[in-house]
């Protein structure tokens, strides 16, 4: 049984002191231990940005891809070896700007991958520009008079797009965040966990204190039913998505179990030679 220590590396972090991403990393490691994962069968696909450095700090198989493309890579990796526990991680720019096209289609494809978005409402690594989740009026170097774009609402989008598991956590609220990631991993399908992960350097508006005052914890509301799409959408709309907890989950059959002829043995472990009977059957159409 792997311990927390097993999922750590010696690598010194490049993140700023106080960055929310430390909390996301810690919660991921806790969740991996909680689900009984092993480093050798855990694979993490990371995107570009501060969040993308995650793979340096977690002992597992890690692939760090191009900006916005974590989800296609995670899909391919899961199909190559369905025994792997595949996590994808990226920032709000990676997920909801350059990777938005993949995001929407990953939701409707429902491959068994857990997607953790480290959302700080700002572009950090490029040193402070507006992000798709930045609020209107947010002032940055590219929006000196305040952003005139309206922010995306990733959670409502996800619920509408066919997501089977949608949750939001806050990097400071470790027990809940670790539990949500654990639930996401255990969900048989695509799980989105948007994590509020404050940027202490470039976002002086949406700070830890601001979130602690603003966020509504759904765990405190026993009347909330996370299995109703209309209720999820209504609550997200009413709170401007400033909620944490399990927002929506439905019965789910993952993509890989629905593929015709797809085998239980991982592709990577199969013998790839084609047998004569199959080959001759295929060639028949060219006679």
């Amino acid at each position: 049984m792997a311990t927390l220590q097993d999922f750590k590396t010696e690598e010194k972090s490049w993140w700023c002191p106080g960055c929310g991403d430390f909390g996301v990393l810690a919660a991921m490691q806790k969740a991996l231990v909680a689900v009984g994962a092993e480093p050798r069968t855990t694979a993490i696909v990371a995107g570009i940005g501060c969040s993308g450095k995650l793979g340096n700090y977690i002992n597992s198989y890690n692939i760090h891809v191009t900006h916005g493309r974590t989800l296609p890579a995670a899909l391919g990796l899961k199909l190559a070896n369905r025994d792997l526990l595949v996590l994808a991680a990226g920032g709000d720019g990676d997920a909801y700007a350059i990777g938005m096209g993949h995001f929407m289609h990953a939701l409707r494809r429902n491959v068994n991958v857990t997607y953790i978005v480290m959302d700080n409402h700002v572009y950090g690594l490029t040193k402070g520009q507006t992000s798709p989740t930045s609020e209107s009026g947010f002032k940055t170097k590219t929006t000196p008079k305040g952003s005139i774009d309206r922010p995306v609402h990733p959670l409502m989008l996800a619920v509408s797009a066919g997501a089977t598991f949608v949750a939001q956590g806050f990097s400071s609220w470790q027990p809940q965040l670790a539990r949500l990631i654990q639930q996401g991993i255990q969900h048989p399908g695509f799980a989105l966990i948007n994590v509020i992960s404050p940027c202490v350097t470039y976002n002086k508006v949406n700070t830890y204190d601001w979130y602690k005052k603003t966020l509504l914890n759904l765990d405190d509301d026993p009347s909330y039913n996370p299995h109703s799409r209309p209720e999820a959408l209504a609550r997200l709309d009413a709170t401007d998505e400033l909620v944490t907890g399990l927002i929506y989950q439905e019965e789910s059959e993952p993509y890989e179990t629905q593929i015709a002829g797809f085998r239980d043995t991982p592709l990577v472990a199969q013998d790839w030679h084609v047998d004569n009977a199959t080959w001759n059957q295929i060639l028949k159409s060219f006679e």
Binding site: V65, L71, V268
Partner: peptide, 21 residues
């Protein structure tokens, strides 16, 4: 897998290649 675009197509293949398939 019929992907959403060619960016996704190649990246999914890279993910699979990393996985050994």
């Amino acid at each position: 897998v019929q992907m959403e675009d060619e960016l996704g197509s190649i990246t999914a293949c890279i993910g699979a290649g990393y996985g050994g398939a």
